[in-house]
C-alpha cells in the first residue's frame, strides 16, 4: 500500500501475531506503571505528573541496590516497595497536600513542579548517563514460534496481573481499602463518619508510589535508567489511565494491553519512529470523544 508517498508494508500472519504478542508484554509494563497513577487519580482526583519521575527514582534505587550491594532487582522489591510507600506518603502529606488547593490544573502544575525537582535532582546527583542492571537471565526466554519472549517480560506480565489482583483484593477486603473507597466516593461524608481523610489521601499516594516501585524492579532487568526515563512513561501512563477510565484498575490493565499492542503494530506498519504516533493519536481521540474511558464512571 502506498499513502502519500509513505510505504505501508504487508506482512504475513506470523509477523503480525508475533508483534501483537510482544505488544501484550509491553502493555503489561504500561499497565504496571498506570496502576498507581489510576489509584491516585481515583482517590485524590489528582493527575499526578510526578508519577514518571517517581518511577525513574525507583529505578535508580533498584540500580544502586544491585550495583552497591549486589541485590537482585526482583529481590529489591522487598525494599523499594516499602520505601516507595513511605516516600509517597510523606510527599503527599507534607508537600502536595499542603500546597494543592483550588483548581485541578493548579494541582497538575504542583505535581509538574515536583517532577521537575526530582528529575533534575537525579540529573544533578546521578548525571545523564544511562545505567542498567546486568542479570544472568536477561536474555533467556521462551520461543513462542512467532516471537521470542525473555523471562523478565514473562515475570513483568505475571507481576502486573498479580498486582492488579492484589490491589483489587486490598480495596475490597480490608478496612483501609474500604476507607479509601469511601474517601474516593464522598470525602466529606467519609470525614463525618470519622475517617482521617488527609491520612487516607497520603496512604493512597503511598500505595500508588509503591506500585510504581514494584514496576521499577520488574522493569529493571530490561530497561536502562536515565533522568528523563520517566517522561517516556508518563505520557503513555496518562494515555492508559484515560483509556481505561480514570480510577479503574481493570481499565488500566486493559488499557495497557490495548496501548502495548497498538504501539507494536504501529511500529511494525509505520516504522520505529512514526509508530509512536499511535499513542498520541489514541490519547487525543479518547480525550475528545470518550474522556470517561472504556471502564470509567461518569465524571462528577
Amino acid at each position: 500500500m502506498d499513502i502519500l508517498g509513505f510505504q505501508i508494508p504487508t506482512y504475513g500472519w506470523q509477523t503480525v501475531t508475533g508483534s501483537a504478542i510482544s505488544g501484550v508484554f509491553l502493555g503489561s509494563i504500561y499497565a504496571l506503571v498506570a496502576l498507581g497513577l489510576t489509584l491516585i487519580y481515583g482517590v485524590l482526583h489528582i493527575i499526578n505528573f510526578a508519577h514518571g519521575s517517581l518511577l525513574m527514582l525507583s529505578m535508580y534505587a533498584v540500580f544502586f541496590l544491585w550495583a552497591g550491594l549486589g541485590i537482585d532487582p526482583y529481590l529489591a522489591m522487598l525494599l523499594v516497595v516499602p520505601g516507595g510507600y513511605l516516600f509517597g506518603y510523606v510527599l503527599q502529606r507534607s508537600v502536595i497536600g499542603q500546597v494543592s488547593h483550588g483548581r485541578d490544573e493548579i494541582i497538575l502544575l504542583v505535581t509538574l513542579g515536583v517532577a521537575i525537582v526530582i528529575e533534575n535532582a537525579a540529573l544533578f546527583f546521578f548525571s545523564a548517563d544511562e545505567r542498567s542492571v546486568q542479570v544472568p537471565y536477561d536474555l533467556d526466554g521462551l520461543d513462542l514460534g512467532v516471537t521470542f519472549v525473555v523471562y523478565p517480560e514473562l515475570v513483568a506480565l505475571a507481576g502486573s496481573l498479580l498486582i492488579t489482583l492484589g490491589l483489587w483484593l486490598f480495596m475490597t477486603r480490608t478496612d483501609t481499602g474500604k476507607a479509601i473507597r469511601a474517601v474516593a466516593k464522598e470525602r466529606e461524608g467519609a470525614r463525618l463518619v470519622g475517617i482521617n481523610v488527609e491520612h487516607i489521601f497520603a496512604v493512597s499516594f503511598g500505595i500508588g508510589t509503591a506500585c510504581v516501585a514494584a514496576a521499577a524492579s520488574l522493569l529493571a532487568p530490561t530497561y536502562a535508567v536515565h533522568p528523563q526515563f520517566g517522561y517516556l512513561f508518563v505520557l503513555i501512563a496518562f494515555t492508559v489511565v484515560v483509556l481505561g477510565g480514570m480510577g479503574s484498575f481493570v481499565g488500566a490493565l486493559a488499557g495497557g494491553f490495548v496501548i502495548g499492542i497498538t504501539e507494536q503494530l504501529g511500529r511494525l506498519y509505520l516504522g520505529e519512529s512514526l509508530g509512536l504516533i499511535t499513542i498520541s493519536v489514541i490519547f487525543i481521540l479518547i480525550l475528545l470523544f470518550r474522556p470517561t474511558g472504556l471502564f470509567g464512571q461518569t465524571p462528577h
Binding site: I47, R103, D104, E105, L108, L235, F238, T239, V242, L270, G271, S273, L274, L276, I277, I279, S280, V281, F283, I284, L287, L288, F289, P291
Partner: peptide
C-alpha cells in the same frame, strides 16, 4: 468537545508530542 481544566492541559501535551513524533518521522 468541551475539554476544561486538566483535560485541556493533557490534550495540548498530547498534540505537542504528536507533532514531536511527526517532525522526527
Amino acid at each position: 468537545y468541551g475539554l476544561r481544566g486538566s483535560y485541556f492541559a493533557l490534550i495540548t501535551l498530547a498534540f505537542a508530542e504528536a507533532f514531536h513524533v511527526l517532525s522526527r518521522s
